[in-house]
C-alpha cells in the first residue's frame, strides 16, 4: 500500500485525508491488506463465489404506484434547495 494507491482510493471514494490522517491510514491500510491477504492460505479452486447468504430468488413487485411523494418532507432534510431543486456547485458538462 503506497501513497500513489492511497491517492487513487481517496479520489475514487471522494474522501480527503489530512496529512496526519494520511500517515496513519497509510500505515493501517498496510496492516489491513496483510490481514486480508491471509485468505490466500485457503484453497478455493473450483469454489463457486457466495454472493449472498440467502438462497432465494428476487421477489418481483407488481407494477403499481404505491408511493405518494410529499416533496416538502424530503426537501426539509436537505442542506440547500431552491424552487424544489437540490442545489450543488455549478456542474459543467
Amino acid at each position: 500500500m503506497d501513497r500513489q494507491t492511497l491517492d487513487r482510493l481517496t479520489r475514487l471514494s471522494q474522501l480527503q485525508l489530512s496529512a496526519e490522517e494520511e500517515r496513519l491510514v497509510l500505515d493501517d491500510l498496510g496492516h489491513i491488506v496483510a490481514l486480508i491477504d491471509e485468505m490466500r492460505a485457503i484453497d478455493t479452486d473450483g469454489v463457486e463465489p457466495l454472493t449472498h447468504p440467502l438462497d432465494m430468488d428476487q421477489p418481483l413487485r407488481r407494477d403499481a404506484v404505491t408511493e405518494a411523494v410529499d416533496r416538502a418532507r424530503f426537501l426539509a432534510v436537505a442542506p440547500l434547495t431552491r424552487d424544489g431543486l437540490y442545489l450543488v456547485p455549478k456542474v459543467v458538462e
Partner: peptide, 10 residues
Amino acid sequence: KAQRVRRRIQ
C-alpha cells in the same frame, strides 16, 4: 476470493 472463502465457511 472472499466470496469463495465465504462459500467454504458456509
